[in-house]
Design a protein around this nucleic acid. Structure first.
Length: 138
DNA sequence: GCCACCGGTGGC
DNA sequence: GCCACCGGTGGC
């Protein structure tokens, strides 16, 4: 069974609470601007959405890097959690539903599909994977 | 034959 | 030592 990352949360720069972000697109928007533009809650008074338990048997937590570019229109960024739950593989799906998994393959795709070359730039693609969150050392 | 998935490693 | 990237292959 394939496990995909399909839920996203961000931390408010002010109150430090975590907020779920409904859509991947919205999440990517926030991530692309971070850390230069910090996310803030609409209302810090409201209770946080989630409590991170890195040892939870039900939920896996991965931490994303800042500044990953927004996925180009027509493309999909797919995050597959490996069987052991420790590592995530990043794939992109092209507008033709072809999966690519390295910058080299993206470059080749652009080369082979001249008609799409204006829709995607190498700088808009990042295979940097989120990392499994670990318990902070006490 | 394809491709989802994982292992290994070069480059940092 | 880590991890982005790629090679190889088992299962279909």
């Amino acid at each position: 069974m394939t496990t995909l990352i399909d839920s996203y949360a961000v931390q408010c720069a002010k109150c430090k609470k975590l907020r779920y972000i409904e859509a991947q697109e919205k999440y990517e928007e926030i991530r692309s601007k971070s850390p230069h533009t910090c996310f803030e809650c609409k209302s810090c008074e409201e209770l946080g959405d989630v409590h991170v338990d890195v040892d939870s048997p039900n939920v896996r937590w991965f931490l994303d890097q800042h500044g990953i570019p927004k996925t180009p229109k027509g493309w999909k960024r797919i995050l597959v959690v490996r069987g052991n739950g420790e590592k995530v593989d990043v794939y992109y799906e092209t507008p033709q539903q072809k999966k690519v998994r390295s910058p080299k393959q993206v470059a080749k795709f652009i080369q082979d599909n001249e008609e799409f070359k204006d829709d995607v730039k190498m700088e808009e693609i990042s295979f940097v994977a989120p990392k499994r969150m670990k318990k902070p050392k006490s």
